[in-house]
Amino acid sequence: MIYTQCIRRVRAGNAVSPNSPVRMQVMSRNVLVIEDDNDIAQLVRMQLAGLSCETTVLNDGRAGLAEALARPYDLVVLDLMLPGVDGLEICRRLRSERRYTPILMLTAKSTELDRVLGLEMGADDYLAKPFSVLEFVARVKAIFRLVDMMANTAAGEHTLIECEDLKIDVERRDVTVRGAPILLTAKEFQLLLHFAQNPGRVYTRGQLLDQVWGYSHSGYEHTVNSHINRLRAKIEIDPNSPEYIQTVWGVGYKFRNAPEN
C-alpha cells in the first residue's frame, strides 16, 4: 500500500488502535479556574464537581499565573479579561513552559479577532460568555477524552509515523521536523495526527471540528483555521507554501499524499 511508505508501526504488547473509542476514566482531576466574575466561577466549579474534579478558583490574573506555574493541573479554565495579568499573557506564559497544560478560555469578548488571539496564544478551546452549561461540560469532556486517549494509547501500540522530514511518535507525543523537536499543544498534536493517519484524504472544516474537536457547531470554523495556521508555522519550512498540510481550495485541507514508487 502507498500509505505504508509514510507510516511505520512498531508494536509492543497488546495493541490499542488509535481510532478505538476510549472511555473516560472516573478519576479526580485537578482544575484551576482563573475567573474574576464570582458567579461564573462558582457555576463553573459546580459543573466541574459533577465531573469529579477538584477545583481551585482564583480571581486575579497574577495569582492565577503563579498558581498555574507552581504545580501541574489537568485543565486551566481561563478568563480573558483579568485584573493584574490578562488571560492572553497567562496563556502565553503557560505555553512557553515545557509542561503541557490544557487551557479552555472563557471570555465576554466574542469577536472573531478575540477568539483567534486566544487560540493563537495556545488555548485548546474557547467559549464566549454567556455560554451554555451543557456546551461547557461537553468542551471539558472533549479535552479530557483527548488526554485519556493519549495515555491509553501509550500503554498499547507503539506507532511511529514518518513522512519525509516529519516524524511523529504517537505514544510519546513527540514531533520532530528535520531532527528538531516541535512543541505542540494537545489539540495541535491531535489535529496533526488525524491528518497524518489519513494522508491524501480531504477534510472540510466542519468534519475536522466533528472528528478532532468533538463538536460541530456552526460558526467555529475559525478554530480550525487558527490551528492549521499554527501547525504550519511550526512544521513547515514555508507556511505560505505548505509541504505537509495542504489547502484544497473551496473544500478544506488534506495531509500530503504518500509518495508513489
Rank of each mutant, 00 (worst) to 15 (best):
residue 1 M to C: 11
residue 3 Y to P: 00
residue 4 T to S: 12
residue 5 Q to V: 10
residue 6 C to G: 15
residue 8 R to S: 14
residue 9 R to T: 15
residue 10 V to F: 02
residue 11 R to V: 15
residue 12 A to I: 12
residue 16 V to L: 14
residue 22 V to D: 05
residue 25 Q to W: 01
residue 27 M to T: 10
residue 27 M to R: 03
residue 28 S to A: 07
residue 31 V to H: 01
residue 38 N to D: 14
residue 42 Q to A: 02
residue 43 L to P: 03
residue 43 L to T: 12
residue 48 L to D: 09
residue 52 S to F: 04
residue 52 S to A: 08
residue 55 T to H: 09
residue 57 V to T: 13
residue 57 V to S: 06
residue 58 L to M: 09
residue 60 D to H: 14
residue 60 D to R: 04
residue 60 D to L: 05
residue 65 L to N: 05
residue 66 A to D: 08
residue 66 A to W: 04
residue 67 E to M: 07
residue 69 L to Y: 06
residue 71 R to K: 15
residue 72 P to V: 12
residue 72 P to D: 11
residue 73 Y to D: 01
residue 74 D to T: 08
residue 75 L to T: 09
residue 78 L to S: 03
residue 80 L to G: 09
residue 84 G to N: 08
residue 84 G to Q: 06
residue 84 G to D: 13
residue 85 V to Y: 08
residue 85 V to E: 13
residue 88 L to G: 00
residue 89 E to V: 12
residue 92 R to V: 03
residue 92 R to W: 10
residue 92 R to T: 10
residue 94 L to Q: 05
residue 96 S to V: 01
residue 105 M to T: 00
residue 106 L to I: 09
residue 108 A to I: 10
residue 108 A to G: 15
residue 109 K to G: 01
residue 111 T to M: 02
residue 113 L to F: 05
residue 113 L to R: 13
residue 114 D to N: 02
residue 116 V to S: 02
residue 117 L to Q: 01
residue 117 L to G: 00
residue 119 L to W: 00
residue 122 G to I: 02
residue 124 D to V: 06
residue 125 D to P: 00
residue 125 D to T: 05
residue 129 K to Y: 11
residue 130 P to L: 10
residue 132 S to T: 12
residue 133 V to M: 13
residue 133 V to Y: 05
residue 134 L to D: 15
residue 137 V to G: 02
residue 140 V to C: 09
residue 140 V to T: 12
residue 140 V to L: 04
residue 149 M to G: 15
residue 155 A to K: 12
residue 156 G to H: 09
residue 157 E to T: 14
residue 159 T to S: 08
residue 160 L to T: 13
residue 161 I to E: 04
residue 161 I to S: 05
residue 162 E to C: 10
residue 164 E to T: 07
residue 167 K to M: 08
residue 168 I to F: 10
residue 168 I to E: 07
residue 170 V to D: 02
residue 172 R to N: 13
residue 173 R to K: 06
residue 173 R to D: 01
residue 175 V to M: 10
residue 176 T to L: 01
residue 179 G to Y: 08
residue 181 P to W: 00
residue 181 P to S: 02
residue 188 E to K: 05
residue 188 E to M: 07
residue 189 F to T: 12
residue 189 F to R: 09
residue 190 Q to K: 13
residue 195 F to G: 14
residue 199 P to K: 10
residue 199 P to E: 13
residue 200 G to Q: 11
residue 202 V to Q: 08
residue 205 R to T: 09
residue 206 G to D: 02
residue 208 L to A: 13
residue 208 L to Q: 09
residue 213 W to Q: 11
residue 215 Y to F: 15
residue 215 Y to E: 15
residue 218 S to G: 12
residue 219 G to F: 06
residue 219 G to Y: 10
residue 221 E to L: 05
residue 222 H to F: 09
residue 223 T to C: 08
residue 223 T to W: 02
residue 224 V to F: 09
residue 225 N to S: 11
residue 227 H to V: 15
residue 228 I to Q: 06
residue 230 R to P: 05
residue 231 L to Q: 11
residue 232 R to F: 07
residue 233 A to W: 07
residue 234 K to A: 11
residue 234 K to N: 04
residue 237 I to R: 15
residue 237 I to E: 04
residue 239 P to I: 13
residue 241 S to P: 01
residue 242 P to A: 06
residue 242 P to Y: 03
residue 244 Y to K: 00
residue 249 W to G: 02
residue 250 G to I: 02
residue 253 Y to F: 15
residue 254 K to P: 01
residue 257 N to P: 00
residue 259 P to A: 14
